[in-house]
Design a protein around this nucleic acid. Structure first.
Length: 483
RNA sequence: GGGGUCGUCGUCUAGCCUGGUAGGAUGGCAGCUUUGGGAGCUGUCGACCUCGGUUCAAAUCCGAGCGACCCCGCCA
């Protein structure tokens, strides 16, 4: 094989635009975000992937605490009887619950499930804790793992049998308060997506057919991926009194009477990391959005024997100066500078600083942006200011690029023919829809598209007809193929 | 749940059809040397997914299992 044609085995060997599925797998594995665990459907999150999750945690945890939410921790196992208390919830989750096999020595006859979500365990406890309207609102969140026994299809970060998430579960004395917070937490999710992940998302509510099992309303942030598939990136559920009725979460009101409480629940998961990979990655690998990256800068010293000492000294000074960006110095002696460039690009570090003897002599360095590859010569005394500007510019450029992509992908259609043609072009489709479960099911069977949401900024459209069944339809609804 | 593709050093792969010493590249380690876009030399380490069957002999043929990937279905 001629040397110049030899595949670079260490890098990404397929183009994102040609085979996104294979590209995605390679990025996850080769950038060392995660690896397959020796159990089907399970993954190991490696340090770089965990760094991203921790960044999301740090950011979001501070936000919800400022909104009066406290963290707690509830058990991994849930008694079967708890599940059965809320019928819709039980039926909705039944197919994907993992049960613990009971041995002969089990103390109890009752089966135990590994939590697929913790409504039932948490609400059983809530029913004990809540007595008075003075106990409300109760706002509790937990960061944990859940298990949903997907039958077959799995994809690292996007669909695995176990994943990490946060689940917030709040209780209120009035529907108004509860509804207001349901939407507030949804907005916080949008904020995570926009500010941290640089991914534009559409806030909206789900049709009846796409609702969380046991909720009166489900709100979502939907992302639109580069392959034309939608990704649900977070949900916030208005549970009404469905669970408080099932679990008898009651409080004495100011009127001295008993009332059922109002509840919401909301969650985001490590799936967000999958969204970041797909949205921003390129043919060289991962691109970590600057606000999400912990190590925002890598310094690669260009080492020659004659100037080793001066260059390393300058690199150390730079590292110190860029401490708040957790700058790394790649001082490894066994790799060439070019090799390091490629590796850090694959791993998606937002900014790279090249520092060689020429630069040290001129009191400058070379700054390279991961998203554009643009190189810039920067005087050393200005580096901190320029790094700050470039990180900010990079974030905005990445967000704007995706925002344009979503905007350009959005197509409003009025006939099924247009619908199917837009779907074939992998567009995000906007159409009048009746919202009926049966109609949606039939539409899905015919086209494979699912309703994603009714955007919150849509206004009701009087006198419209459903694109599919022609029955009265008030709302423009978004459709796409989905992950 | 249905259909398909595939499991060989850490990674990519040759060998399988036609059974007979598992070869290469990349990588790891040691040393020298080099570092501004995946450098070079020398030495060295490292693999047939598991179980069973056929056979004098199995990476190769047969069966089962396990696992990965792709398409469809299912799925907050």
């Amino acid at each position: 094989m001629p040397a110049e044609k030899a595949p670079k085995l260490v890098g990404i060997t397929v183009k994102k635009s040609e085979d996104m599925s294979e590209w995605y797998n390679q990025v996850v594995l080769k950038s060392e975000l995660a690896d397959y665990a020796p159990i089907h459907g399970f993954m190991v999150i490696r340090p770089l992937g965990m760094m991203m999750w921790e960044q999301i945690q740090h950011y979001f945890d501070a936000r919800i605490k400022s909104l009066g939410v406290q963290n707690a921790y509830f058990p991994l196992l849930i008694p079967e009887s708890f599940f059965k208390k809320e019928q819709e919830h039980a039926e909705g989750f039944a197919p994907e619950v993992a049960w613990i096999a009971q041995d002969e020595n089990a103390e109890s006859e009752e089966r135990l499930a590994i939590r697929p979500t913790s409504e039932t365990m948490m609400y059983d406890m809530y029913s004990k804790w809540i007595r008075s309207h003075r106990d409300l609102p109760l706002k509790i969140n937990q960061w944990c793992n859940v298990v949903r026994w997907e039958i077959k299809a799995t994809k690292l970060f996007l669909r695995t049998r176990e994943f990490l998430w946060q689940e917030g579960h709040c209780v209120y004395s009035t529907h108004e308060e509860e509804r207001e917070d349901t939407l507030r937490f949804l907005k916080e999710y949008q904020r995570v997506a926009h500010e941290l992940l640089a991914i534009p998302v559409i806030m909206g509510w789900k049709t009846k057919g796409e609702r969380f099992a046991g909720a009166n309303d489900t709100f979502t942030i939907e992302g639109f991926m580069p392959d034309g598939k939608a990704l649900q990136m977070g949900t916030s559920h208005d549970l009404g009194q469905n669970f408080s009725r099932a679990f008898q979460i009651k409080f004495s009101g100011e009127d001295e009477k008993d009332h059922l409480a109002w509840q919401n629940s909301w969650g985001i998961s490590t799936r967000l990391i999958g969204a970041v990979i797909m949205t921003h990655g390129d043919d060289k690998g991962l691109v970590i959005p600057p606000h999400l990256a912990k190590n925002k800068v890598v310094i690669v010293p260009i080492i020659f024997d004659a100037s080793r000492e001066q260059v390393m000294k300058a690199a150390a000074a730079l590292e110190k100066q860029l401490h708040e960006y957790n700058a790394l110095v790649d001082a490894r002696d066994n790799y060439s500078a070019g090799w390091k460039f490629n590796e850090w690009e694959m791993k998606g570090i937002p900014l790279r600083i090249e520092l060689g003897p020429r630069d040290v002599g001129n009191n400058q360095c070379v700054l390279v942006r991961r998203d554009t590859g643009q190189k810039k010569i920067v005087p050393l005394h200005e580096i901190k200011k320029v790094v700050d500007e470039e990180l900010s510019a990079m974030h905005h450029a990445m967000f704007a690029k995706q925002e344009k992509w979503v905007k350009d992908s959005l197509v409003t259609v009025s006939t099924m023919k247009e619908f199917e043609s837009a779907l074939a072009q992998r567009k995000l489709i906007r159409a009048l829809f009746c919202g009926q479960v049966d109609c949606e099911k039939a539409l899905k069977e015919k086209t494979t598209a699912t309703s994603r949401c009714i955007p919150l900024d849509e206004k009701p459209h009087k006198g419209g007809a459903c694109i599919h069944c022609n029955q009265p339809a008030e709302w423009y609804t978004l459709f796409a193929k989905a992950y």
